[in-house]
Design a protein around this nucleic acid. Structure first.
Lengths: 293, 293
DNA sequence: TAATTCGATGAATTTAATTCATTGTTTAAT
DNA sequence: ATTAAACAATGAATTAAATTCATCGAATTA
């Protein structure tokens, strides 16, 4: 079997002309090279070089191997450089799984400075795991999940990175728009618009309506934030969303944020990572940057 | 150092999914793969895979190595195939050194059937060694010399492949044109045109003039056959050349062949090869074909 | 002609690769 | 819930391979 070492030997021979010099270049003895190539020659029943005087002269097989060596050895070196960059955290792909729709807006504000600071790190945001990113994290398909609902798991480490209030988005012209906050009973005759998530993971149910036996008139599912907000603005329903998100759209879409209950629903965005495994350095860098923000 | 074996391991892992299966594919134990990659990991301070359940999941480093393996392993296999072809004599370059100008004409008639019979053998005819091909043969720069002058050498084996008569080419209108043969004395007042070779290697001197103390009026050096023949036709001199060569040009250039001496000078074209060394099988095939012709 | 340089080679040695035997997990089956 | 089977990791033992050492012979240089 042709081995990388054989290629190194051929290469060294080619530009020194003698075994002895080539050997010292490779920090080996002349004997080692001679034996190594002899073995290759026996394996393939070829000659790699011929003695010509007291130098060596490559045969056709030797020239073939040499040209292969010149082509392929730099590729090995390149891959090794890349591995070293990965080891030093200078290169890699940060694979992020998103589990919440509105988190994306927040994520952008973190990614922007991150990619400037780490130009050789590819950032790969995957939204297809929207509702089951945990499994993907455990399967090493992603390295980080961003979620407002830190489902407890033995091997996952969560860290809060951003606090916000979960509020009710209502049309600026709705009768609830002037209220300082709403009570569960106020939603009895409203249409509630939510993302397509199981009800137990929607805070407006689990932390607002369900505890006091409240309910809504209708429950409508919408996937995209923008359409959801336009529906709200048109007074076709209300939606529970982060306050910062509602405020961000308020100047362009006539909507208003109203607290859910007297004290509001306090939430956080969490970053989830595997406790064990090979978390690369640039992942730590990302979480640090996210927390500092 | 990344080794070819590491790439084989990565490749096997990738399409089996488990160390155990990959190991049996490579005719090794699971332990061997584990140790081999562990060493690589330590060397580069990386992780190549992570355990995910009881399978194994490649990391980014692992994927990098895998894609490299997929790219480079086929190249190794290709080169090995080429080496085997060389070993079996199915592939190679027949490097021929020409030592005589007129031999080229003869060579063409041999090469034509040869390249049809051996389509994977490149034929490389080098004329730059015209007057010192022997050294090139001993230095392994060529594998075969074609020469009418088999300079004896311990390590060179000569075989005659083509007999011909060395004749004097004269203008069709010259007074010597009607002679059955010329004597050395007839050249006393002639201009002799030869190739630029040392005089001792010119048969007209060594086998015709010098033995009887003959000489010529002038000795002119010309490198190319065509010009030489035109000079002869214009009666500007005479030249010693193979009869078949003169006859070949006679229909288009007004020249005539006259024997040198009553019995003529009989010559042969020889093929010279190294007695020892790595003479490839297709070289033997060439000499056989040349002799059969 | 002698001294030097170089590659080849067999034997000895060192180094590296591989296996063996075992452990701890994970998954599937009972 | 328990057990059994499948799997990867690991340290120690073993085997295989690479490398060196010590010479030799051939080629070149002084």
């Amino acid at each position: 079997m042709i081995d990388r070492q054989h290629l190194h030997i051929l290469h060294a021979i080619a530009h020194t002309g003698t075994l002895t010099e080539a050997a010292s270049e490779l920090c080996l003895t002349q004997s080692a090279l001679s034996h190594a190539i002899k073995k290759l020659e026996q394996q393939f029943a070829i000659k790699v070089w011929n003695k010509s005087g007291r130098r060596v002269q490559l045969t056709q097989s030797g020239e073939l191997l040499l040209s292969f060596a010149k082509r392929v050895l730099p590729q090995f070196e390149h891959v090794e450089t890349q591995l070293q960059q990965i080891a030093k955290g200078e290169r890699g792909t940060l694979r992020i799984g998103m589990e919440c729709h509105p988190c994306y807006q927040w994520l952008l504000t973190v990614i922007k400075p991150y990619i400037q600071q780490y130009p050789d790190i590819d950032v790969d945001v995957r939204q297809q795991f929207q509702f089951s990113a945990l499994g993907a994290l455990l399967e090493f398909d992603i390295d980080l999940i961003i979620t407002p609902d830190p489902l407890h798991h033995e091997q996952i480490d969560y860290q809060p990175v951003f606090d916000y209030e979960h509020v009710l988005a209502v049309s600026a012209h709705a009768k609830l728009a002037d209220r300082a906050f709403v009570e569960p009973m106020d939603l009895r005759d409203e249409t509630l618009i939510t993302y397509p998530v199981e009800q137990s993971r929607l805070d407006i149910f689990s932390r607002f309506l369900t505890p006091v036996g409240g309910s809504v008139k209708r429950h409508k599912i919408i996937e995209t934030t923008e359409i959801m907000l336009h529906m709200v603005a048109a007074n076709r329903g209300v939606a529970a969303l982060p306050r910062w998100l509602v405020n961000q759209y308020a100047p362009v879409i006539p909507i208003k944020a109203v607290s859910l209950g007297e004290h509001g629903i306090q939430k956080s965005i969490y970053l989830g990572t595997r406790k064990h495994g090979d978390n690369p350095p640039f992942l730590q860098a990302f979480t640090s940057l996210a927390k500092a923000r």
